[in-house]
Computed example of a mutant assay.
Amino acid sequence: MSNPPAAATPPTSADVARLAGVSRATVSFVLNDTAGGRVGEQTRQRVRAAAAELGYVPHAAARSLRAGRTGVVLLGGSSAPIGPLFSEFYRELQGALRRRGYTSVLYGPSPGEGDEPARAWAELRPAAVLCLEPVLTPAGVDLLHRSGTRAVFTLGTAPVAGAHALIMDQREVGAAAGAHLLATGRRRLGVVIPADPGLDQFSAPRLAGLRAAAASALAGPVETLPLDFTEASGAAAAARCRDLGLDGVFGYNDEYAMLLLRSLQDLGLDVPARVALVGADDLLLGRLLRPRLSTVHMTLPGGESLATLIDEIIADPTTTPATRNLLTVRLIPRDSS
């Protein structure tokens, strides 16, 4: 068996300089977009053509050493399921960061506990970190800053000292669902609580928001409906609805609400005559069901605005950390309530 061919030696800036007939400094100026008016357009084109012919790409690590930091924006991933809202948000943000010259890196799920995630991220020397899960501690934020990270953001339900907090107040989601159910005359309310512990950070404040809405309307106690994402668990939750005499349920999100809807129908409980049902996320599939699923529509700001904020704080890391509320919600009533 013949040995595989040895990997070719990657071209260097010196190779580009020789082929283009310029100095290595000129190559660096042109390919790193720092030439200003010092390099004529014909020379620029010659350098870029030589680089393309050789397949040369500037070395990011070397450039980072010169700058003292990378152009990486690290997006800390989540161990919890990422829904369509976050998927679209991350897609837009990555595109906006790329247009500003940054490389976004999705790193996750976050490794370890305590300061371990911050230590793992710090090894990459990112210019900025945006952490989706509440895994960063104040000490971890400090460690990232001391390692050269200029901007640290948390994206979640509560701020962390030292970081810029992008808050998604999940209580508003539950409150919107509860207010709608109460407005339709429902008084014995239930809330689906997913069995997946990774969703606790969202389900607990949504429950609190609905309970606050019920309390303000002097409704009865709000019951919880534990639900694993299985047909058997859906059947058990539907039976609990029947046994408790619930007349309105917030299904946590559209997926869990659709599972419960099918289970209620299998049990002979009419939706919405017997039980009104509301989801969240405004998924297309919820509009295709019969009855069509009422839902809480959630909106996050576009990726451009957040990329601009990240860029501004990287440029001025002395900016005092602030808390910004990102989430807006509105109830979309349909046939299920």
Rank of each mutant, 00 (worst) to 15 (best):
T318V: 08
P117K: 14
T26K: 08
V129T: 05
G108K: 06
E123G: 12
G140C: 08
E255S: 13
R290A: 08
V296S: 04
G245A: 09
T149A: 12
A96R: 01
G198V: 03
L136K: 07
V30F: 13
F153H: 07
D200M: 07
A179H: 12
M258C: 04
A219W: 09
A17C: 10
G148E: 01
R146Q: 13
R24M: 12
S104R: 05
P126D: 11
L227Y: 07
G286N: 01
L166I: 02
S87W: 10
G40S: 14
G279N: 04
P111W: 11
L261A: 00
E223D: 13
R63P: 00
Q45V: 07
G268P: 09
F89K: 05
P84V: 10
S104Q: 05
V192S: 03
R46L: 09
A204G: 04
I310W: 09
P111Q: 13
L293Q: 05
V129D: 08
T319Q: 15
L261E: 00
L189I: 03
R211M: 12
S337R: 07
D266R: 14
D335Y: 00
T319N: 03
T319W: 01
R206Q: 12
A49E: 14
P194M: 07
P159T: 00
A219M: 09
R188P: 01
V152W: 00
G220T: 11
P109D: 14
I82G: 03
D142Q: 15
L283R: 07
A195M: 08
S79T: 05
W121Q: 15
R146P: 00
A8E: 13
H297D: 09
R18H: 14
P84C: 10
A60I: 00
L260R: 11
Q94S: 12
A139W: 05
R206D: 09
A67Y: 01
P134R: 03
G148Y: 06
S147T: 12
L97E: 01
D169K: 06
P117W: 06
G178K: 02
F229M: 14
D200Q: 12
G279W: 04
T308R: 13
S104Y: 02
T230E: 09
V249A: 05
A276P: 03
